[in-house]
Design a protein around this nucleic acid. Structure first.
Length: 112
DNA sequence: CTGTTGACTTAGG
DNA sequence: ACCTAAGCCAACA
């Protein structure tokens, strides 16, 4: 049995690690919103922090960052940007269709 | 320690 | 459905 304080310390030290682990757990063909991931990683309300982390993600990261979209079902990138196009491509590749630049959260949102 | 930033979210209009 | 304003949290300078 670990000390509660130590566990809390570990939770803090985890930080991005926990978030990355959560993102990696998103199954293929499903998507999750920033706020949802933040909450699952133990940082409720830190949706913008999730965005910050992804922005600082190593270029060679194997994380399925393309499965992370906004709560409204739209991609977080502005249209006609390289990031937007890449994410769109990967999502369709995994069987997640985009209707008029939007994903149907009702059908494709990951529910753990 | 204070201020700024951002691949966000929600509530109103 | 689209736009705006305010709220939110962690990392950084």
């Amino acid at each position: 049995m670990k000390d509660p304080q130590k566990q809390h310390k570990e939770q803090q030290l985890l930080g991005r690690q926990q978030l990355y682990q959560t993102i990696a757990a998103i199954p293929r063909g499903k998507v999750a919103s920033y706020g949802q991931l933040a909450a699952l990683a133990g940082h409720t309300g830190a949706a913008r922090w999730v965005g910050w982390c992804l922005r600082h993600l190593p270029k060679d990261s194997s994380l399925p960052w393309h499965r992370v979209i906004t709560a409204s079902g739209k991609l977080a990138f502005p249209l006609a940007t390289a990031g937007y196009l890449r994410q769109c491509e990967k999502l369709e590749q995994e069987g997640v269709p985009l209707k008029n630049h939007k994903v149907s959260m009702k059908l494709y949102q990951w529910k753990p």
